[in-house]
Design a protein around this nucleic acid. Structure first.
Length: 200
DNA sequence: CCCTGATTCGC
DNA sequence: GCGAATCAGG
C-alpha cells in the first residue's frame, strides 16, 4: 500500500479528530500504526506546537529572563482531540491581573442526565437462570473500566446506572470478535428461537 | 499485558 | 519517503 492522496487525506482527517495511530492504521488497512506515526511526522503533523506566533501581548522588553521553551527530550504533550487549548501565553514578568472580564466562566452543568440511557440489558425473563447467575458472579469481578479504558478486547457490558457515579463497564477479557466477555455474550446474544414468539 | 506516540535508521 | 524496530511512557 502506498500513501495516495486519498489515504493521506484520511490520515489527516482522523489524526485531526484525535484518532489513535492504530485506529487510523486499521481504518486504512495495509499499514501498521508505526507507518501511520511515521507518516504523521513526515507530514509535519503531530506536534502542533507553534507557540510563538503571538503578537499583541505583553510589553516588549523581556530580554528572555530564562528558558522560554523547555526542550526536554521527552516532549510530546498530550493531544486531547476536539478542543484545542489556548495554551495560555506565559506573561514573562507580570502576574495575571485581578480577573479576566474577557469571558464568562462557562457554567458547569451539574450533569443530571436522568434515566437510564439504554444499556443492552435484555429483559430478564428470556435469559436462562444459569446465564443470569453467571453474569451476577462475573459482575462482582468486573474490572470496572471507564469508557475511555475500553479496548477491542475488553468486555463493554455496562454495569450500573449511567446517571450515577456507580457506573462502569465490565472490562473482563472479551470473547474474540465479540464485544463482551463470555458471561455477557451469553445474555447479549440469544438465539432467534428463544426470543421468537415474543408477541410485541 | 494492554495500549499510546516518538525516534532511529536501513532500505 | 517509508516503516520495522525500538524506545519511553500510561
Amino acid at each position: 500500500m502506498s500513501w495516495t492522496d486519498e489515504r493521506v487525506e484520511t490520515l489527516k482527517r482522523m489524526w485531526a479528530e484525535g484518532q489513535s495511530a492504530s485506529a487510523i492504521a486499521k481504518e486504512l488497512g495495509g499499514v501498521t500504526r508505526n507507518a501511520v506515526i511515521g507518516k504523521v511526522h513526515r507530514l509535519g503533523l503531530s506536534n502542533r506546537n507553534d507557540e510563538p506566533a503571538e503578537a499583541a501581548a505583553p510589553a516588549a522588553e523581556a530580554p528572555a529572563p530564562e528558558k522560554k521553551v523547555e526542550k526536554k527530550p521527552a516532549a510530546a504533550p498530550s493531544r486531547p482531540e476536539p478542543a484545542p487549548e489556548p495554551a495560555a501565553a506565559r506573561a514573562p514578568a507580570a502576574e495575571a491581573p485581578a480577573a479576566q472580564p474577557a469571558f464568562t466562566p462557562v457554567p458547569r452543568r451539574p450533569i443530571v442526565p436522568a434515566g437510564q440511557p439504554l444499556p443492552p440489558q435484555p429483559s430478564a425473563n428470556e435469559i436462562s437462570p444459569e446465564a443470569l447467575a453467571s453474569v451476577r458472579e462475573v459482575e462482582k469481578r468486573a474490572r470496572k473500566l471507564t469508557l475511555m479504558e475500553l479496548t477491542e478486547r475488553t468486555c463493554k457490558w455496562p454495569i450500573g446506572d449511567p446517571a450515577t457515579e456507580k457506573f462502569w463497564f465490565c472490562g473482563l477479557p472479551s470473547q474474540p470478535g465479540k464485544p463482551y466477555c463470555e458471561a455477557h455474550v451469553g445474555v447479549a446474544f440469544q438465539p432467534m428461537s428463544s426470543r421468537r414468539d415474543r408477541r410485541r
